[in-house]
Design a binder for these strands. Structure first.
Lengths: 183, 183
DNA sequence: TATTGTTATACTCTATAACTATA
DNA sequence: TATAGTTATAGAGTATAACAATA
């Protein structure tokens, strides 16, 4: 059984046994906290070992990194997902939508809208294939290529923020550790 | 300038210069790929260095881990986020909603619905605080505590899957590396 | 029959704003 | 004035299903 937060807070070495429902000589506020109808006050929240679960830690790191990405690129208005699509198209000129979706594990139905938003400002082009008329060949436009360059500059700055927390050696260690998760 | 995928594919050492728009003596299919209106065929997609960006790698790892979590707990129907809420409440009996939201970086407006879904099946209780009548004291019910135990068993299995890819030493390294991102 | 791009639907999540009741 | 819980809304993301054109 876990002692209530107020008890732990008031406790320290002085506390030898955990209070049940019976009152102690603590101030009413502290005595009540943890009992039904009382709320925890100011003290820091106990994560309860959550930070020992890989999923929790990786998720928090991912959120931090994406927020910093967003902040570093806010005036260019490009999301991490959009950036990854641009990179794939740049590296594979003429690639079909289904291949991009596959490579990034984006639903191809979802990719349609993503490409709409890259095509509208003229960053990419969709051209019906002459070979397989079901599919579209994707290419970066000149504007798209210039945009990608601008993005990469900003992302360098962002990566420096990440490496600041990771250490230069830390980044390569991290990439090595997480390699097996890239399906 | 990046050569088109078909060219790279057909290339190898034999290729010394990249084709412009002019035709070469390749089969029409390969020659066309990468030009406007042609699509890339079967060869593996080039990630174009995406796997050197921390954000990409961490994101892919996070998705993998959450999918495995979901798979391992599918019959219990609990998401990673719900699990984290249960853990926080278990570790901080009587905690107020706003503190939980803060600790997990969930919008408190969003937490309302999450708690609704934990309260409905009787896993947690919300009790209006006698001390500060604006807030609710959150507690795990008996059923909630039992559920949490069952969850932890399943999550052990899930964590083993993760460690299988990370290595036992890898997990502790990972937690150490990502520690600085836990705000 | 299978695949490609597309539309549509439902559910989840994020981000805000605003309201109420309390402090 | 500020905070806690709540409701509402809009935008993204995820997950499916279905359809027309094409292979």
């Amino acid at each position: 059984m876990k002692p209530d937060i107020a008890q732990r807070r008031a406790g320290g070495k002085r506390r030898t046994r955990v209070a049940g429902l019976g009152a102690r000589r603590k101030p009413a506020r502290l005595r009540a906290a943890g009992e039904a109808g009382a709320v925890m006050r100011a003290p820091k929240v106990d994560l309860g070992g959550l930070d020992q679960f890989t999923g929790y830690v990786v998720r928090r790191a991912q959120v931090w990194i994406f927020q910093d990405f967003k902040r570093a690129l806010k005036d260019l208005d490009v999301t991490p997902a959009q950036f990854s699509v641009l990179k794939i198209i740049a590296a594979n000129p003429g690639i079909a939508q289904a291949r991009v979706a596959e490579a990034l594990s984006i639903e191809r139905a979802r990719l349609v809208q993503m490409l709409d938003r890259l095509e509208a400002p003229g960053l990419i082009s969709r051209i019906r294939s002459a070979i397989d008329r079901r599919s579209h060949a994707l290419h970066l436009t000149g504007e798209g290529a210039r945009m990608l360059e601008r993005l990469e500059e900003r992302i360098e700055e962002h990566e420096r923020n990440v490496v600041e927390r990771l250490g230069a050696k830390g980044k390569s260690e991290l990439l090595r550790l997480l390699g097996p998760f890239l399906l």
